[in-house]
C-alpha cells in the first residue's frame, strides 16, 4: 500500500477504503510511519476482538512504547471483521511496513459513514510537518 493512496485521521491512523464481496465498504486501518517514528521502542499493542462495534473518533485499542502508552482511535464507525493477529508477537512489522504488514484491523463501515472528515495524504503531511517541531 502506498501512503499516497490512503486517508488519515488527525490522530495518525490511516485507513484504506475498499469494496467487499457484498458491496459493503471495508476500511483497513493502521498507524502512519510518522506515528511509529514518534512512538519508537514499541513493546505492546492491544487490538479489539472480531465483531466489536467501533465508533469514529473513539479508542479501539492501545499501543505502548517504553516511554508511554497511547490510545488507538477508530477513524470510522463500524464492526471489526479482522485484526492483525501476527502483529502483537512481532511489532517490528510496524517499523518495517506500517502501511502493509503492520496493519491493525479491518472494519466493515456503517452504511451512512462519511469519509469527508479524513485527511488526504497532502493534508496529513502538512499536519505532521507542523507537529514535527
Amino acid at each position: 500500500m502506498r501512503p499516497e493512496e490512503l486517508l488519515y485521521a488527525k490522530t495518525h491512523e490511516w485507513v484504506y477504503v475498499y469494496e467487499g464481496g457484498a458491496k459493503e465498504r471495508i476500511g483497513r486501518v493502521g498507524i502512519s510511519a510518522f506515528a511509529v517514528e514518534a512512538l519508537t521502542d514499541l513493546v505492546y499493542v492491544e487490538l479489539p476482538s472480531i465483531g466489536k462495534e467501533l465508533s469514529e473518533g473513539k479508542p479501539f485499542g492501545e499501543i505502548e512504547s517504553v516511554k508511554a502508552v497511547s490510545d488507538l482511535y477508530s477513524p470510522v464507525t463500524g464492526k471489526v471483521i479482522a485484526a492483525n493477529q501476527d502483529l502483537p508477537a512481532d511489532l517490528s512489522a510496524l517499523n518495517r511496513d506500517p502501511y502493509g504488514a503492520g496493519w491493525l484491523v479491518e472494519i466493515e463501515m456503517a452504511k451512512d459513514q462519511s469519509i469527508s472528515h479524513l485527511l488526504d495524504y497532502a493534508a496529513y503531511q502538512k499536519q505532521c510537518a507542523e507537529e514535527g517541531h
Binding site: V43, Y44, E46, E64, V66, V69
Partner: peptide, 12 residues
C-alpha cells in the same frame, strides 16, 4: 520493592 510483570503492558 521491585515488580516484574508476566505480560507486556507497562506499569506506570
Amino acid at each position: 520493592v521491585g515488580l516484574q510483570l508476566d505480560g507486556r503492558r507497562v506499569p506506570r
